[in-house]
Design a protein around this nucleic acid. Structure first.
Lengths: 163, 163
DNA sequence: CATGCAAATGCAAATGAGTTGCAACTGTCA
DNA sequence: TGACAGTTGCAACTCATTTGCATTTGCATG
């Protein structure tokens, strides 16, 4: 068991305690139980993919997940990866993100809600969350007579050149 | 010449004067001049598409623009529509929006910066702009050592059921 | 106004990401 | 230990969009 999360969740309004914690331990087995309970079979392929997802600190796309899963446990087709990702998303186990001009990228859904900052040069993703922005969004929608079903906020950024 | 904009730009922080004004008049001809100056030929097809875009108050996708252009001036292929849209986007004349799970939708780029609220039931789009949110976004990015290149903020909403 | 030629067009074929039909497998629960 | 519904792999398909190519056409120039 390793403390593997290299994710960095940024809370500019400082509600964040230390959010680095192990998300891969025992959750995996219990997650599988939950899936079984939902009538979803935990096959060799799915187990491999779940393991890969659990210890992914980044936001990989389907081919990358396929590569990693294939490495961990050879014998899984790309279509199974796609099918399983869709299933897991439906089950609320993972989240799918469609960033600009790129294939969909995935991450486990166990964390708190957050938005994304994408480094346009490297593709690297930094997560952040601002309650103040969320409040403003809700207020704006309300003012127009709407309720927010969900939102998407992405900041496409570039590392500041110190100069 | 008609005052055709059925766009509604919402400024919750009230900097908005009456923003309803004619954006189709004379701007079309001068826009064509600008394009010619940029070495871009104004063909019959492009003129038609520009006219359609100029008086579109909504956010049509490529096939819809094709339909409208074909109606205004028969004889334009879908691939030309796609090619022209790409060209116009590059020229900064229009903006492309890739909303969730839908083909790209376009709008003229002459307006101020704004974000979008998408009615998940109807697909209808409402524009809005919040300086306070923009400021917060910039602050968050800055705090992480980034500059914002551009951003995307979409609220997927549903009309509130008054009850 | 003629004209040359780079730019633009239409078509059909290609692309990229993701989905799906189907026959062969395989978890699971009884 | 079956039975069988849920899964898999493969290849073929979809959908939105792009592209190769032979033909046409704006438009700057003569």
């Amino acid at each position: 068991m390793k403390i593997s999360s290299n994710k960095f969740l940024h809370f500019p309004e400082g509600r964040g305690q230390n959010r680095t914690m192990d998300r891969t331990t025992n959750s995996l087995e219990s997650l599988m139980q939950a899936l079984r309970a939902a009538g979803i079979r935990v096959t060799r392929q799915r187990a491999a993919l779940l393991a890969v997802l659990a210890e992914a600190g980044d936001h990989p796309d389907a081919p990358e997940l396929h590569r990693r899963a294939e490495e961990a446990a050879p014998g899984i087709s790309l279509s199974t990866v796609y099918r399983t990702l869709t299933t897991l998303e439906t089950q609320g186990v993972i989240q799918r993100h469609q960033f600009e001009g790129a294939p969909a990228r995935f991450e486990p859904a166990e964390t708190d809600h957050h938005d994304h900052m994408i480094d346009v040069d490297t593709g690297e993703v930094v997560e952040f969350c601002s309650e103040r922005i969320e409040k403003l969004q809700a207020a704006i929608a309300a003012e127009m007579g709407y309720d927010i079903v969900h939102h998407r906020m992405e900041l496409y950024v570039r590392k500041r050149t110190q100069e």
